[in-house]
């Protein structure tokens, strides 16, 4: 489901009961009923996905991170901790800096010529600026909004990152178990096992996105960044990928940017709400959704602004 559409709907349907009496008495309302009122068709999956309890370990720590495009700050003084065993959802209206923050974590913002940043991002205690960019991006992998498989076979897509660029290219036989394992973890193996030499472009959108996840986790990264991974997908594929995210969080730290509040609620262990470049509030999902500390969070979750 598209989070943007949901946000627009929120604005277009002010007669819905959830905010008839203003945004204040939210905590008194049943959260699920409220989500129903916001977007009934988005709640056809369980409001909160079942999950295994996992001990959270801090992997990535942001200390006072600001990101600028030219002189314009896009992210202001964000401090945040990202833990393995947890899914962190970055939520907030369009243009609030969620994606910029996400792309800072693996230094993809450096591809934008006028982007710069201050503050520190520590990966297992090591400043990411001190790690060679290619190595950092192997450890902090990323899945994009649009499924973007390479125009090559399924096997080559997953094996892409495993094939070292400078040293001798590993043989296919050496890669096979790794590729199979990645496809299994991404829940795609059963569907594509028959012919791994098929072009990845012939897969469906949901399959392509799972292939991109398999590709991203094939090199066993420590962090997986996901930039609205489901916004281009139908509800069924979305459900499959959400289940997948919850399984993967046991071995990786996962950060998901999403426009879709219902999705954040379904999958996230912790939620960080950003607004105009500021990190307004970060906390446990249930707490942020049912009892936000900040007024802005409360209003955003109630759909006062999109």
């Amino acid at each position: 489901m598209n989070g943007r559409a949901g946000a627009v709907r929120n604005r277009l349907a002010p007669e819905s009961p959830a905010w008839q009496n203003g945004p204040l008495p939210i905590e008194k309302l049943d959260l699920e009923a409220q989500l129903m009122a916001i977007a009934p068709e988005q709640t056809n999956t369980r409001p909160r996905r079942a999950r295994a309890a996992v001990t959270a370990v801090e992997r990535l720590r942001l200390e006072d991170v600001s990101v600028f495009y030219g002189n314009t700050p896009a992210v202001k003084n964000v401090s945040l901790s990202i833990r393995q065993g947890e899914v962190l959802a970055l939520i907030g209206p369009s243009g609030c800096g969620k994606t910029t923050l996400l792309r800072t974590l693996n230094r993809l913002t450096e591809l934008t010529p006028n982007a710069s940043h201050s503050g520190r991002v520590l990966l297992d205690g090591e400043d990411t600026d001190d790690i060679v960019d290619t190595e950092l991006r192997r450890r902090v992998s990323m899945v994009f909004q649009q499924p973007n498989p390479f125009p090559m076979s399924i096997f080559d897509n997953v094996g892409f990152a495993l094939r070292e660029q400078s040293r001798k290219r590993p043989r296919r036989r050496e890669l096979e178990p790794l590729v199979d394992h990645a496809l299994q973890r991404a829940g795609l193996h059963d569907e594509v096992r028959a012919d791994l030499n098929r072009s990845a472009l012939r897969l469906s959108g949901g399959q392509q996105q799972r292939l991109c996840i398999a590709r991203a986790i094939a090199q066993e990264p420590e962090i997986l960044l996901m930039d609205e991974p489901c916004s281009a997908l139908d509800p069924r594929s979305t459900a499959v990928i959400e289940d997948l995210i919850l399984q993967l969080r046991e071995d990786l730290a996962i950060v998901v940017v999403t426009h879709n509040l219902q999705q954040a609620h379904r999958i996230a262990d912790r939620v960080a709400f950003m607004y105009l470049g500021d990190l307004v509030e970060a906390g446990e999902t249930e707490q942020v959704f049912s009892d936000p500390r900040e007024e802005q969070t409360r209003e955003y979750i109630a759909g006062v602004f999109g």
């Binding site: 290619t134 973007n148 590709r215």
Partner: peptide
Amino acid sequence: TPRQMREASFALGKT
């Protein structure tokens, strides 16, 4: 060729 395809490769640690 979409920019995202290049970014996907950069994001996987390719030069």
